Amino acid sequence: MAAGFLAHLAGDRIEVRSAGSLPADRINPAAVAAMREAGIDITAERPKALTTGAVEASDYVITMGCGDACPVLPGKHYRDWPFDDPAGRGPDAVRPIRDAIRTRVEQLIHEIDTQPRP
């Protein structure tokens, strides 16, 4: 959901990569439905494993509770967003998680947009 919001709200200003420490075999259908309600289609996305290469290629690394399973490299901007896991939850439980993620994504976009450029 975070990647969907980031791609939708930032457009081509920010390159988005999405991966997880223990990715499921498919995206949670309730998350797909909740994002559709917000006007964002994430049906084409597929869960992927987070790799050290993906972290190396990123300036910002946003984790959602992966703890020690996520690669940590110097020089990256790390943020951990401790949201409830939407896995196995229905749309009514996923909507508040979706809305909280959107708020964090909007804050991240503002932070990135206001950072001085080297």
Rank of each mutant, 00 (worst) to 15 (best):
A24Q: 12
R26H: 12
P29Q: 01
G53N: 14
I40W: 07
I42T: 10
D25H: 09
R13K: 13
A44Q: 08
A54T: 08
V55G: 10
V32H: 00
I40R: 06
A24G: 14
A44N: 04
N28V: 01
E15I: 06
L22K: 13
N28H: 06
R17H: 11
T51H: 07
R26M: 07
T43R: 15
P29V: 08
L50C: 14
G53A: 15
R36V: 00
R13M: 10
T43M: 08
V32Q: 04
I42F: 01
K48R: 15
A49V: 14
T43P: 01
E56F: 05
S18M: 00
R13D: 14
A44I: 01
S21L: 09
R26C: 04
E15K: 10
M35V: 12
T43E: 13
L22Q: 15
R26E: 11
A38S: 12
A44D: 12
A38L: 10
S18V: 00
L22I: 12
V55P: 04
G53W: 00
G39C: 12
R17K: 05
A38M: 14
A19R: 03
I40F: 10
L50T: 06
A31W: 01
A33P: 02
T43C: 09
V32F: 05
V55Y: 09
K48D: 07
R26F: 08
I27M: 14
L50G: 13
D41P: 09
G53R: 10
L22D: 11
G20C: 04
D41S: 01
P29H: 07
R46W: 04
I27P: 10
M35Q: 09
R13Q: 14
G39V: 07
R17P: 06
G20M: 01
A49Q: 13
A49I: 11
N28G: 05
A24T: 11
P23V: 09
A34Y: 13
A19Q: 05
I27T: 08
E45G: 03
V32P: 03
T51M: 08
R13A: 15
A31C: 11
